[in-house]
């Protein structure tokens, strides 16, 4: 038995910004994250936290 979605309509949909605004906001958030990360002092020898194994 597949449960029927007892879904409320997406709340606040009448206030959803125009489509591009959310994409712009998401991109801006990514850039803001990158700026924050760039401030961390990173020794040159630090490798990423994953390693390839043959």
């Amino acid at each position: 038995m597949l449960a029927a979605a007892a879904a409320a309509p997406q709340a606040g949909s009448s206030q959803t910004p125009p489509p591009d605004a959310d994409l712009d906001a998401a991109r801006e958030q990514m850039k803001a994250s990158a700026r924050q990360i760039a401030k961390v002092k990173l020794p040159m020898a630090t490798e990423p936290a994953f390693h390839f194994k043959a």
Partner: peptide, 14 residues
Amino acid sequence: TEYLRAMRVRALVQ
């Protein structure tokens, strides 16, 4: 490069 920087900082977190 941004993903890799995040993963390098992650090593410092660990």
